[in-house]
Design a protein around this nucleic acid. Structure first.
Lengths: 163, 163
DNA sequence: AACAAATATTTTGTCATCAAACTATCTTGC
DNA sequence: GCAAGATAGTTTGATGACAAAATATTTGTT
């Protein structure tokens, strides 16, 4: 409703596919721009990783393990900010590919931890190189505003929770 | 690798579930914070919509239609920045629920357009009320930095493309 | 010691996203 | 007028996410 006077139907038809028309209702809406920017960023990283025949989902897990050494799936899920159940399939794949190995916890039969293998370390470095290039690109785009943006994003996460 | 000296394993175990420990490797990385913040924002909106027994995916489509009046799935996909194939299922659901209706294009048998029904308009307003509250919350969190953040997010999308 | 409660992980179901393959239809060029 | 190519939409398959239910095991209580 609102202002039904101007219906911008026409300029939708554009040859290039850059995102032509932002609906008026979303123009000032952080959530919308957050979603679109995150999707763009992920797709760009994904494409770069894909060219090397790797999976984008591996990067964060391998990197966290390279930093923390050894973690249970639950701790890993807390650190990377995703639900535990999301990790199961990825971890299974990483084990199969020999990039991580499981260690049964001798004190608790329910629990195990994962750590990088040598191949896992190598793969982490490969992925990190790709990720780092992507980060640099984002940093250039953000320029001097980077710190402000990081601060706002952190406030959003703290205020709304991780999920 | 890098600095294997301090492995912060310990403070992971926290009673609350606010995101405790950001891996050092991600602390300054826009892409990571973008992903986590977007996920948090989406989950918060999703939860609010869910309480009213609605679907978050409906909101953007209904709102775009309320603004543009009548669109083909392809144009809708361009406006909302998602792939065409993503819309198929949602549009089907919206038709079934009587929130939108399809109109065959008389000049092209392949093509149709969708527009809101009266129920669709009502539903759009309900969802908008929820979305608006969510937006206000994000606006409060962003405070004076909102415009800077919006500008950076827009630059990211323009530089990396919509997907 | 036994049963209840908490915890660690997996499984299942839903949804959103893209890309690529497929179908149907329209347009173009010859 | 007909075949080739472009376009609109759908389907299928992969990935990634959550939540809720199911399993297995440990801990705590009486």
């Amino acid at each position: 409703m609102a202002k039904a006077s101007t219906k911008p139907k026409l300029d939708l038809v554009r040859g290039d596919d850059s995102y032509a028309t932002i609906p008026e209702a979303f123009r000032n809406v952080l959530g919308y721009h957050l979603r679109v920017a995150q999707e763009a960023s992920f797709q760009a990283f994904s494409a770069a990783v894909d060219k090397a025949d790797l999976k984008p989902g591996w990067y964060s897990i391998l990197t966290i393990l390279s930093e923390y050494g050894e973690l249970t799936p639950s701790d890993l899920s807390r650190v990377c900010g995703r639900d535990r159940s999301t990790l199961t399939a990825t971890l299974k794949g990483l084990v199969i590919r020999g990039l991580i190995e499981r260690h049964q916890n001798p004190d608790d039969q329910r629990s195990y931890s994962v750590r990088l293998t040598d191949d896992g370390h190598k793969m982490q470095r490969r992925l990190h190189a790709i990720a780092h290039k992507h980060d640099q690109r984002l940093d250039e785009i953000a320029g001097d505003d980077k710190d402000v943006v990081l601060a706002v994003l952190a406030r959003i996460v703290n205020a709304l929770g991780t999920g």
